[in-house]
Design a protein around this nucleic acid. Structure first.
Length: 529
RNA sequence: GCGCCGCUAGCUCAACUGGUUAGAGCAACAGACUCUUAAUCUGUAGGUUCAGGGUUCGAGUCCCUGGCGGCGUACCA
């Protein structure tokens, strides 16, 4: 429905805003164009004036026939100065408004593109044109009109009817600079997305990656499932959990730190290929690469081992990259990363030898391992065995040197309570991580399915927790019971989705790839204190 | 947690060594303009300089405390 012709909203705006006020002292000699200072108050007044004139500033619905993209696609080569009979109904937000005498131009932004609106007295009539000119940047409108090009060749919709769909009470940020304040961009992502192309781009990269990951797994017979977020036992990873409380059960619960243990229960239950894409929560520091809640992909495949998981990881990374990049290379900071598979596979021990120049192995006596760390001037804790010392050197000295995709294979058993012992070396487990651009992108292993050994590993962890290690897990007796019913040999895989998106979107901060990152509450906005 | 940096109009930014009434562009408001597109032109209005305290004749600027954020670092997958 068009604006009410008889009463363009702006005409009543000023009286509404000031009707009850005594005249200001300067009113008599001030020019007529003195307006309320508050931009929001001006627009509230417009809304009130529209209502008074019988026009709903927030109508119920609108029938759209086309998006801007569809119009562009259908009229890609329309010559400048062409009018067509093609009638369209489009809807979106007004980004810019340009008056040119008795013509008006506007830029309408919809789902994924913009298109110009062309308004003249001829097409809309003088009264309704004046009503159109009362619209503000940021308003949502529905437009009926015909497709045309201007003399300069700009594809446009010649407006024959224009309906306000939702009034914007707050002004949009500067049309050229957009929103720059990082804090405001995160807090008011809805504004960021309206005015910053880059924010939209990153959001779409994430959307496409998620879709590609799911597609790749579903095509290979994996079933997507949903495990519990609220858990009474902490496990599946090494991390500090969040604790919450259920009132009716009077029960403290953890927010999950990993997806692993419930997915493997489903392997026991007979699903032989399952995955979950889900939020996990870790009560740790916040920085450029860590948000307290983040998204993990975990997938488990029966009858497979960690070599199969390497193939699966390559497939997932490539599928994601192809979904969002023109080729398999991506710039990350000053780094050019080539994601073309296969990725080199080297053991942790080999990589330490190559990049740190020392021999370290979980099988060596702990005194010898400590001597190596002493020589490298790395600290260590008294409870660390040779395996933990090995990982320390790898994390600190080797991982920062791994720029191109690299599978780091065979981890010390000591640091991997859920992975199966290596078929050739009992001090190792069959585990790998994929490192790209100095960061872990994926973590996978041949799953431990021996219930007796699993219980022993849990008990070691629980002892560490009792000894004050807040990140150690609990004994999950129900999980052990599940294994006692028999879990087939299984390969398991975890991918940090946010990190993958960061890499493929080329963003240095995890907060750019999470639409609503965790922030301190804004003062005065309510909520928990 | 620690260190450094930032916070000025709705938005993006200025303001010298502490010195007149804190400026500009965009947005807003009034007006001109029938093909603009960061439209242009004329005019008008718009400020708790993050908050509180202090030093000073005088504070956006210096000091203290607090708030929020960014970056680095530590812890941490």
């Amino acid at each position: 429905m068009p604006h009410d012709d008889a009463s363009p909203p702006g005409e009543a705006a000023e009286p509404t805003a000031r009707a009850g006020d005594a005249p200001a002292p300067y009113a008599t000699d001030a020019p007529d164009n003195t307006e309320p200072a508050d931009l929001r108050a001006q627009r509230v007044a417009k809304v009130e004036a529209m209502r008074a004139a019988g026009t709903d500033p927030y109508p119920v619905r609108f029938d759209r026939t086309h998006t801007a993209t569809e119009i562009r696609f259908a009229h890609a080569d329309l010559a400048p100065g062409t009018e067509t009979d093609t009638s369209v109904h489009i809807a979106g937000r007004l980004l810019t408004l340009r008056r040119q005498g008795k013509l008006s131009f506007a830029t309408l932004q919809d789902r994924d593109d913009t298109i110009q609106l062309f308004v003249s007295d001829d097409s809309l009539g003088e009264e309704r044109h004046r009503a159109f000119d009362e619209l503000d940047r940021g308003d949502w409108v529905g437009v009926a009109g015909t497709v045309m090009t201007t003399r300069r060749g700009e594809l446009s919709v010649k407006v024959e009817e224009c309906t306000l769909l939702a009034k914007a009470l707050r002004p949009l940020p500067d049309k050229w600079h957009g929103l720059a304040d990082v804090d405001t961009r995160y807090r008011q992502r809805y504004v960021d997305l309206v005015v910053n192309e880059e924010a939209r781009r990153v959001a779409h990269v994430r959307i496409e990656i998620l879709a590609a990951l799911r597609r790749h797994l579903l095509e290979r017979g994996f079933k997507e499932i949903e495990g519990p977020v609220l858990q009474s036992i902490q496990g599946g990873a090494t991390a500090r959990p969040f604790v919450t409380h259920h009132n009716a059960l009077d029960l403290d619960l953890y927010l999950r730190i990993a997806l692993e243990l419930h997915l493997k229960r489903l392997i026991v239950g007979g699903f032989d290929r399952v995955f979950e894409v889900g939020r996990v929560f870790r009560n740790e520091g916040i920085d450029t690469t860590h948000n307290p809640e983040f998204t993990m992909l975990e997938a488990y495949q029966a009858f497979a081992d960690y070599h199969d998981m390497m193939d699966l990881v390559e497939g997932l990374v490539v599928a994601s990259a192809r979904a969002v990049l023109p080729d398999l290379t991506v710039r990350y900071g000053d780094l050019e990363v080539d994601l073309t598979p296969p990725y080199p596979r080297a053991t942790m021990v080999e990589l330490i030898k190559r990049h740190a120049g020392v021999d370290l192995h979980p099988a060596m006596p702990v005194e010898a391992a400590r001597a190596v760390l002493d020589r490298l001037e790395r600290g260590y804790a008294p409870e660390w065995g040779a395996g933990r010392c090995t990982v320390e050197v790898f994390d600190e000295l080797v991982e920062p040197q791994l720029l191109q995709p690299t599978f780091v294979v065979d981890y010390p058993r000591e640091v991997s309570p859920l992975a199966r012992a290596h078929r050739d070396d009992p001090t190792l487990v069959e585990r790998f991580e994929l490192i790209v651009a100095r960061r872990e992108l994926a973590n996978a292993y041949s799953e431990l399915n021996d219930p007796v050994e699993q219980l022993e590993r849990f008990e070691a962890e629980a002892a560490a927790k009792a000894g004050g290690d807040a990140e150690a897990g609990d004994v999950d007796l129900d999980y052990v019971r599940a294994l006692e019913y028999g879990m087939p040999p299984t390969g398991g895989l975890g991918i940090g989705v946010d990190r993958l998106v960061m890499l493929l979107a080329g963003t240095p901060s995890v907060r750019e790839v999470i639409l609503f990152p965790t922030l301190r509450p804004e003062p005065g906005m309510g909520g928990l204190t």
